[in-house]
Amino acid sequence: MVSPSSSPSSSGFFAICLLHSVVAVTCGGLMMFFLNEIAVFSHGSETARKLQGSTPHDQLLIQTSDSFAGLLLMAIGFLLFMVSFVKDRDFQAFFAKGCVLLHASMALWRVYFERRVDDLARDWPRQLVGDIMLSLSWVLFLIYSWREKYD
């Protein structure tokens, strides 16, 4: 007899994980290899120039930090890809709750700290909407799986 928690769930978890995986791998790759172009595109040329640093040492340190952040995003994307194949409903719900908490924490970070950085103050509302949308996808999955479990 198969317990309800280990039975295969809907393809929603798989789809959401793949979507988030593609976003993370793409953003990570762009951060690692095309950071200057992405900074100019998203922040404008003046702000991008300020974010590069003023001395060669600062520029190298910032480039290294951004490359490692991109590498971390790519690793998260590959991890999401691997997790998308897990069929255990209990794990899926636990993972989705953790992702909601992560995105909510990032949104709070943007509201309380990132908006105070003068060079980034104009961009935080757009990024906040992105965090809320990513979190909302997991919340909708949790609602759908809860409804599926108790119907």
Score class of each variant (00 low, 15 high):
Leu19Thr: 05
Asp118Val: 13
Leu102Cys: 14
Ala75Arg: 11
Ala96His: 01
Val83Asn: 01
Phe33Cys: 13
Met74Ala: 10
Ser11Arg: 05
Trp146Arg: 06
Pro56Cys: 08
Pro56Thr: 06
Ile143Ala: 08
Ala48Phe: 00
Leu73His: 04
Asp118Arg: 07
Tyr112Ala: 15
Ile132Thr: 11
Arg89Ser: 12
Phe41Cys: 00
Ala96Asn: 10
Arg126Ser: 10
Ser9Gln: 09
Ser21Gln: 10
Gly98His: 00
Arg122Cys: 00
Tyr144Gln: 06
His43Val: 07
Leu128Tyr: 14
Arg49Ile: 01
Ser42Asp: 07
Ser21Ala: 12
Ile62Leu: 02
Val117Ser: 02
His20Tyr: 14
Ile143Tyr: 03
Ala69Val: 02
Cys27Ser: 07
Trp109Met: 08
Gln52Ala: 01
Asp119Gln: 13
Ser65Met: 04
Gly28Arg: 09
Val100Ala: 06
Arg110Thr: 00
Phe78Lys: 00
Leu79Tyr: 05
Glu46Tyr: 06
Ile132Asp: 00
Met31Asn: 07
Phe68Gln: 03
Gly28Trp: 11
Lys50Cys: 06
Phe81Val: 07
Ala96Phe: 15
Phe91Asn: 09
Asp58Tyr: 00
Lys87Met: 03
Ser65Gly: 05
Val83Lys: 13
Val83Thr: 02
Thr26Met: 04
Arg89Trp: 01
Arg147Asn: 00
Gly28Ala: 13
Val23Gly: 00
Pro56Met: 00
Phe14Pro: 08
Ser84Trp: 03
Gly12Thr: 10
Ser6Asn: 13
Ala48Cys: 04
Leu60Ile: 10
Phe95Tyr: 15
Gly77Ala: 14
Arg126Cys: 02
Met1Asn: 08
Val86Thr: 01
Gln59Ala: 06
Pro56Gly: 03
Thr64Cys: 06
Val100Tyr: 07
Ile38Gln: 13
Ser45His: 07
Val139Thr: 04
Thr55Lys: 04
Ile38Arg: 01
Val117Leu: 08
Met106Gln: 09
Leu73Asn: 11
Arg116Ile: 12
Gly70Met: 11
Ile76Pro: 00
Val22Ala: 04
Leu19Pro: 09
Ala121Pro: 12
Val100Lys: 11
Phe33Arg: 08
Trp138Tyr: 09
Tyr112Met: 11
Gly77Asp: 12
Ala93Asn: 03
Met133Lys: 01
Ser67Asn: 05
Ser7Tyr: 03
His103Glu: 05
Thr64Asp: 02
Gly12His: 08
Glu46Arg: 05
Ser10Gly: 15
Leu134Phe: 08
Gly28Cys: 10
Ser6Gln: 14
Leu72Gln: 09
Phe81Met: 03
Tyr112Phe: 15
Gln63Phe: 06
Val2Met: 06
Leu18Pro: 08
Leu18Ser: 02
Gly98Ser: 04
Met74Ser: 12
Ser105His: 03
Ser3Met: 15
